[in-house]
Structure formats: C-alpha cells, structure tokens
C-alpha cells in the first residue's frame, strides 16, 4: 500500500525476473542512445558547432555590412543579394523583423556562417529542410554548412521576437553555377 510504511522486508526483497530483465534491457538502450550521440560526432554529418565568439551588436553589424558590401551581386526587395565564394565566412544578421542579406550559395561547398542578432533573441529556421538554430544578441554562433541540394530556401524566424515576428523571413538560394540565378528571380547587377 503506497499510503502506509513499506513491508519489513522491502529492502531485501528479490527483484522479480521480468522486472530485472526489463531494467537491464532499458539500461542497455539508454547507454546505446548516449554513445550514439557521441559516435554521430565521428561518423555523422550533422553536428551542431561548439564555436561561439562574443561580440557586440555594433561590431557584428559592421562585420555584416562589410561582408554584404564585398560580395554583393544585386538586390531583392531592398535587401542586398550576396554571393560569397566557397569556404568563406558568411555574416547573417537577424533583427526585428528581417534576415539580411539574401544569400546565394553553391551546392556541395562549405560556408562558415556567423549568426547573430542586432536586438532580441531570434530563431534561424531553414525551410523546407527544417534545420533550426538559435540566434542571440552579443553572441556570434559560428556554424559550417554544406548545402546538399539546389533550390530556394526560406529562413523563418521561429523564436518570438515581438509583434511583427511572423513577417521575419529571409531567403537563401543554392545553385550549381551562376547561370541558374535567373530561375530564382535574381539579376546580377554588379
């Protein structure tokens, strides 16, 4: 009875065969799941980065501006369209309520993303592949991405950031080469 003191022999009572078997089986599954996460770091291809830099909103905005100016190829809805070379650093800035700039990336190339916010906490959610990371002010989250499919992707903000939260949406285009830009409504102007 769970409302009264346990029977005298409660501590020495033998554990039944099925209960003992279940506990051992559960423990094996638990350890399997734990080591699976570690092994995925060795053999898996999707692992969150452990690299973060502290920054200030002013410093990061400057880095983002310099990056946008350097690799700008055109404009889309008043946002710069930026096509950085493979292997380069990409500074993506979230703020109420936009992601800047619009990015053009090449398929199967690595890019080092730097994610930060100019104001409050935002959520970096790339659709439709459904890949999600957090973006915090004063922290530069440094993650390497390799796009594996061409196409148009949207960055939805999925952390509440004020009344215009639902309007915060950005764009990433992944291409094989520059000739495909027209398909995504991007004209190269410089």
């Amino acid at each position: 009875m769970s409302l009264t003191a346990p029977p005298k022999d409660w501590y020495i009572k033998k554990i039944a065969r099925d209960e003992k078997g279940w506990i051992i089986f559960s423990l094996i599954i638990c350890l399997f799941m734990f080591f699976w996460m570690i092994l995925w770091h060795v053999y898996g291809k999707q692992n969150p980065s452990s690299i973060t830099y502290t920054t200030t909103t002013a410093e990061f905005t400057q880095l983002h501006q310099a990056f946008s100016d350097k690799y700008k190829i055109g404009e889309d809805n008043n946002l710069p369209v930026v096509m950085p070379p493979a292997e380069s650093d990409v500074f993506l800035l979230g703020q109420m309520w936009s992601w800047s700039p619009v990015l053009v990336l090449k398929k199967d190339e690595w890019y080092t993303f730097h994610l930060s916010s100019k104001d409050v906490v935002h959520g970096f959610s790339v659709q439709p592949i459904n890949m999600n990371f957090m973006v915090l002010p004063t922290y530069d989250y440094t993650i390497k991405f390799k796009p594996t499919e061409t196409g148009e992707y949207k960055i939805v903000c999925n952390e509440f950031c004020g009344i215009g939260h639902h309007m915060m949406i950005g764009k990433i285009v992944v291409v094989n080469d520059e000739s495909e830009l027209g398909q995504y409504g991007i004209t190269k102007t410089n």
């Binding site: 809805n77 008043n78 946002l79 309520w97 936009s98 959520g123 959610s125 659709q127 439709p128 592949i129 459904n130 949207k154 939805v156 903000c157 999925n158 952390e159 509440f160 215009g164 939260h165 639902h166 309007m167 915060m168 949406i169 950005g170 764009k171």
Partner: peptide
Amino acid sequence: GVPRRHWDITFSGAIFSH
C-alpha cells in the same frame, strides 16, 4: 517545419513567403 509561437504562417505583410 511549422514553427511554434507563430501568428501567421502565410507571412502576411512580409517581403518573402514560404
């Protein structure tokens, strides 16, 4: 991929949509 805590997943008023 539908976000939680989101008022409008048709993104009315935004520059892009998904």
